[in-house]
Design a protein around this nucleic acid. Structure first.
Length: 453
RNA sequence: GUGAUUGUAGCUCAGCUGGUUAGAGCGCCGGUUUGUGGCACCGGAGGUCGCCGGUUCGAACCCGGUCUUUCACCCCA
């Protein structure tokens, strides 16, 4: 006998967990559809040529590769072995598990370009896999819920993303969170002003840690990454920047006046805010975070990140605008913007805050119990009637002690038990008992159905 | 990938400087109660102490490896 086990970073989901997950999925799905997004799915595995090189060197290392079928060594030579694992990879693995939903989506758009109606709004809810070291809130298999729109530069898309985030969070009962908003071009502009043109990549990586390690450590890291002291000092007012959104914009207009691209980014950000206003919306939960810098290299415009306050889980949603995601697949000039909810993290957050509604767990409404074969057969004649009337009903399948049947109902949180015994058979009724209150009444089938509806 | 950390019954955890048959609470099964669950009382089952190897007269305890958990870094949802 072997002890069963699970691969690192993967999990089973029990019925209770699934009910709760489906509750979250349901809210997200309904919201995406309300905004006109259409669902697609793509395969779990993609060709490695589709995946590699899209997530940076780090990302490539985190890809799960799939060994070729059959004799996977048949294309290799002794030289390949000598050259090491990296060189050999392309000869023994041609496929990999998807790392996110955005790159497969880009591939999908290119392959189906003639059949799609642009602007194309799609959503996708599927698992992704990363060969990361698991930690709290970090798994090797987890779901993403992506919504992207491609084929338009309209800032209304960004505004709608904010509205979708707000709707989902409201539905889930989350009231204390912030939608951090920034624009990659602003970061580019800041790098320019610092005299470090083109270095916004390393700037982002360092600045992103400000919350975690503090300003002085960030300065050290910037020096290490090749920024000069004068430039870093110019960053100081950005770090200290406080105030509401208009105030921050006002400051940056001045700060970025030398940087054309920086001003463009600022302009886009204002555009998103104006669009919200035109839609009759406000800026609740929206925060302009000048030092928000998301890792993924393909973002070129707006960037978002959502963090629930006062919980131990990292960001639960993020996204941004990209100019040319499909370019690598040979289709230029398709701008897009998208974002993703991390269901597994949302789950952890809702659990931590104890926000799952009881109703998310509702299962069977009534259990038919019986004392003997006669009662069981009487119950079999009734069970279908309940179901035909839309009542979730079960009949206990075995002839066991009534206590055990009641126990089953209690454990499974079934609120009603319908007792089928000799008395009921004679009077053509059932004894319907509310397990919560203990109240019991003798009812005809029609009355019972009425009561349960 | 780097550095730590965790693992004892279904669950949460005790278990002395290595020393007979490894414990508790909860849960589970049975009974008090053969037409009524939750509560109470009584009884019972259940562990090759993550796995492999080593040291020792003797290992849950010490050592090595491995897997797993959690954490920091890296990166990210």
């Amino acid at each position: 006998m072997q002890k069963p086990s699970l691969p690192k970073g993967t999990r089973d989901f029990s019925p209770v967990q699934m009910a709760r997950r489906n509750y979250i999925f349901g809210v997200i799905k309904e919201t995406f559809e309300l905004f006109g997004y259409q669902q697609i799915e793509t395969p779990s595995m993609e060709n490695l040529s589709t995946l590699t090189g899209k997530y940076g060197e780090e990302g490539d290392q985190l890809l799960f590769k799939i060994l070729n079928s059959g004799d996977f060594l048949k294309k290799t030579t002794a030289d390949d072995f000598a050259a090491g694992a990296k060189a050999m990879l392309s000869k023994i693995a041609e496929k990999g598990l998807r790392y996110d939903l955005t790159v497969p989506f880009a591939r999908f758009v290119v392959m189906n370009r003639n059949d799609l109606q642009f602007p194309f709004k799609r959503y996708q809810i599927q698992p992704v896999w990363r060969a990361d070291r698991p930690q709290k809130g970090r798994y090797r298999e987890f779901y993403q819920c992506d919504a992207d729109v491609v084929g338009t530069e309209s800032l209304s898309c960004e505004a709608e993303i904010i509205l979708m985030i707000r709707r989902v969070f409201k539905r889930l009962g989350l009231l204390d969170y912030s939608i951090k908003l920034n624009n990659r071009k602003i970061l580019t502009g800041i790098a320019e002003v610092m005299g470090a043109e083109g270095m916004e990549g390393p700037l982002c990586v360092a600045i992103d840690k400000l919350d975690k390690i503090g300003w002085s450590k960030v300065q050290e890291e910037l020096l290490q990454r090749g920024f000069d002291d004068g430039g870093i000092q110019k960053l100081q007012p950005i770090i200290d920047l406080k105030g509401n959104i208009p105030e921050k914009i006002e400051f940056l207009k001045e700060f970025l006046k030398q940087s054309e691209i920086g001003l463009k980014g600022l302009n886009e950000l204002e555009g998103v805010i104006d669009t919200l206003k035109q839609m009759g919306e406000n800026l609740d939960f929206v925060e302009f975070d000048v030092v928000l810098a998301r890792g993924l290299s393909y973002y070129t415009g707006a960037i978002f990140e959502v963090k629930v306050n006062n919980v131990s889980i990292g960001s639960v949603s993020g996204g941004g605008r990209y100019d040319n995601l499909t370019g690598v697949f040979g289709m230029d000039d398709i701008p897009g913007v998208g974002f993703s909810f991390g269901v597994d993290r949302l789950y952890d957050v809702l659990e931590e805050l104890d926000l799952f509604p009881e109703a998310a767990l509702e299962g069977t409404k009534v259990l038919l119990v019986h004392f003997d074969k006669k009662g069981y057969e009487y119950g079999l004649g009734l069970i279908t009637k309940f179901r035909e009337n839309g009542i979730r009903a079960e009949i206990y399948p075995d002839s066991v002690k009534i206590k055990k049947q009641f126990d089953y109902a209690t454990k499974k949180q079934i609120p009603f038990v319908a007792i089928c015994g000799d008395n009921e058979i004679v009077s053509k009724t059932i004894a319907l008992k509310n397990l919560d209150s203990g109240e019991q009444s003798s009812l005809t089938l029609a009355e019972a159905i009425d009561r349960l509806n």
